[in-house]
Each structure stands twice: as structure tokens, then as C-alpha cells.
């Protein structure tokens, strides 16, 4: 009885917001907005899959959506590349190398300060601070990095790498600090260098947490938005250069963006169908990643 009472609310919440939410999500993918009634209605049977066919034809037309999709994947890969660097940074702090206190606080700052504030700091710094320094040092103007169609995407990638590097510092340090001292001492007696300790001791011990990170990264693999909403806004006024737009940002703009007074609800079905398709494509990737981790898991207990 106690267990039922204690869990009742949580189970109802899960059923309503997770189960019903996902059912609602699936249903919406087969619906369109009816402006007369102001509600979402189902397509007629022959057009039942219209949102999906529209999405696939946009995706494989080789036009904008394809490049948005690729941009999102590239942006996410940068986050993946930053992961080992982030673990190495945590390892250096864990080994108490000089300035570890400063590193700890500074690496944690991007987590503390709103990503919006960090993104805008970055934007103004690149637009004005870096440009000013460049002029002082080289006597020439720095190419526009935020608004230029060719430079904007690499600049966003730099930003993604720069802000992904701190990673989950606290979790990394917490997990590393749980590695038994005896094991580390055995490694030292065996003559392990820090590199060997990192590869043969720390990484295997961190396997469960690495699995969580990788699963997290792959979950949003195709829908990465990056800092685009923070830096370029919702499409009103300043527009993001075409070559910068990611699939996630594009979809966000369709639902909440400024579209010149048009009703965003017309895009609900289409974006939901796209989201559902991406989710289905992600499932084998997520489970494949999990299986891969399970296979190579050293099963270190500590």
C-alpha cells in the first residue's frame, strides 16, 4: 500500500506526459492544421502520410534541408570530438597538476553562466574584440566571422568545440575520485606513466559514464541546434547565413520562429513527422552504441 501511494503520482505523471505525449506525437504526425476550426485534423486516407512524404522529398531533394541535416551532424561530431579532450582535462585536474583550482572553477563557469550569455559574449567578442585585436596586430580587417556565409559555419564549429570541452567536469572528477588508491599505487609501482594510467586505468573505470555521454550525444545526433538560436535569433531581423543552419534550428524556427505573421501551427504536423522519423532512425544508432559499449566494457567494479 505504501509503495502504491508513494509511486501513484509519478506513474500517472509518466503515463500522461511520456506515454500519452508520445501517442499524441505520433497522431500529430498524421494531421494538418485546419485554419477554419483552428485545430489539428487528420488527413484523408489517401494523404495520410503526406507529412512524411513531404519531409522525405524535402530531405532528398538535395536542396536546403539536406545541407541543414548535414550541418547538424557535423556540429554534433564536433561535440563528440570534444569528449576525449574533456575527459583528459578532467584527468589533469584529478592528478592535481599546477593551477588545478583555477582550472576547476574556470572550466565550470560555462556551465554556471547561461549558455545564452556565453553565446552572446562569444558573438560580440568575435565581432568586435577579435576584429579590433586583428586590426591592431596586422593592420588589416578581419573577415566577418559571424555573418559571412563562408566563415559563419566554421565559427559555429569552433564555438561548439570551445564550449563542449569543459564537458561534465563535476561528474568526471567525481567518478575519477572514486577510483581506489590501491589501484593507482599498483600502477605507479608497475612504472605507469600518466598516459598509461589514463588509458589503462582511468578510461576503463569511467566506462559506464562514457556510455552515458555517448548515448546522450547520439540521442540528439540529428537534431543538434547548436548556438544558432542564441546567436542568430528566431529569424526576425538578423538571419543566420544559409550555410550555418542546422536541421534542429530549422525545425525550431518552423514551430516558434518569426515567419512574417504566418501561423506556425501549419507546420506542427510536418515538424512532428520529421521528429518522429529522426527518432526512429536514432533507435538503432542508440542501441548499436549501447551494444558496442556493452561488448567492450571492461566491467570494472569500484
Amino acid at each position: 500500500m505504501f509503495c502504491i501511494c508513494a509511486l501513484a503520482f509519478m506513474l500517472v505523471q509518466w503515463v500522461v506526459f511520456y506515454v500519452y505525449g508520445n501517442i499524441n506525437n505520433i497522431l500529430l504526425a498524421f494531421q494538418r492544421f485546419d485554419a477554419q476550426t483552428g485545430s489539428q485534423v487528420f488527413y484523408d486516407a489517401p494523404n495520410m502520410f503526406k507529412n512524411f512524404t513531404d519531409f522525405f522529398s524535402d530531405l532528398f531533394s538535395g536542396q536546403n534541408l539536406t545541407s541543414y541535416f548535414l550541418n547538424g551532424v557535423i556540429m554534433h561530431l564536433v561535440t563528440l570530438v570534444a569528449l576525449p579532450v574533456s575527459i583528459m582535462f578532467s584527468f589533469i585536474i584529478y592528478k592535481k597538476l599546477p593551477l588545478k583550482g583555477l582550472f576547476k572553477v574556470v572550466l565550470y563557469l560555462p556551465t554556471i553562466i547561461s549558455s545564452m550569455v556565453v553565446a552572446l559574449f562569444f558573438r560580440y567578442f568575435v565581432e568586435y574584440g577579435l576584429a579590433g585585436m586583428w586590426r591592431t596586430l596586422f593592420g588589416a580587417d578581419l573577415p566577418t566571422l559571424i555573418m559571412d556565409p563562408y566563415n559563419a559555419f566554421p565559427t559555429m564549429l569552433v564555438y561548439c568545440f570551445f564550449t563542449s570541452v569543459p564537458g561534465s567536469l563535476l561528474l568526471n572528477l567525481g567518478t575519477m575520485s572514486r577510483i581506489p588508491d590501491d589501484l593507482v599505487e599498483v600502477g605507479q609501482i608497475e612504472g605507469f606513466s600518466l598516459w598509461q594510467e589514463f588509458i589503462h586505468l582511468t578510461v576503463p573505470m569511467m566506462f559506464p559514464i562514457l556510455q552515458v555521454y555517448c548515448l546522450g550525444i547520439f540521442t540528439g545526433f540529428f537534431t543538434q541546434q547548436g548556438p544558432l538560436f542564441a546567436i542568430y535569433g528566431n529569424g526576425a531581423g538578423i538571419k543566420a547565413p544559409e550555410g550555418t543552419i542546422t536541421f534542429g534550428y530549422y525545425m525550431t524556427l518552423q514551430v516558434i520562429g518569426d515567419n512574417g505573421g504566418g501561423d506556425n501551427r501549419f507546420m506542427y504536423g510536418y515538424t512532428t513527422a520529421a521528429n518522429l522519423t529522426i527518432g526512429l532512425v536514432s533507435i538503432p544508432i542508440i542501441w548499436g552504441t549501447k551494444k558496442l559499449f556493452d561488448r567492450f566494457d571492461p566491467e570494472a567494479e569500484f
Binding site: Y20, N24, F218, T252, V255, M267, N275, I286, K290
Partner: peptide
């Protein structure tokens, strides 16, 4: 299974579906 599904299944309700819900 609820915990496993919630944490390891990449089912995310779309922004539009959440607004509607």
C-alpha cells in the same frame, strides 16, 4: 522497464506536439 525506456529510448516528443499536449 519504465526507467530503461525513459533513459535509453530516444523517443522525444516534438516541440509542436508538446505545445499541443
Amino acid at each position: 522497464p519504465i526507467v530503461l525506456i525513459t533513459n535509453y529510448m530516444p523517443l522525444s516528443v516534438s516541440m509542436a506536439a508538446n505545445i499541443k499536449l
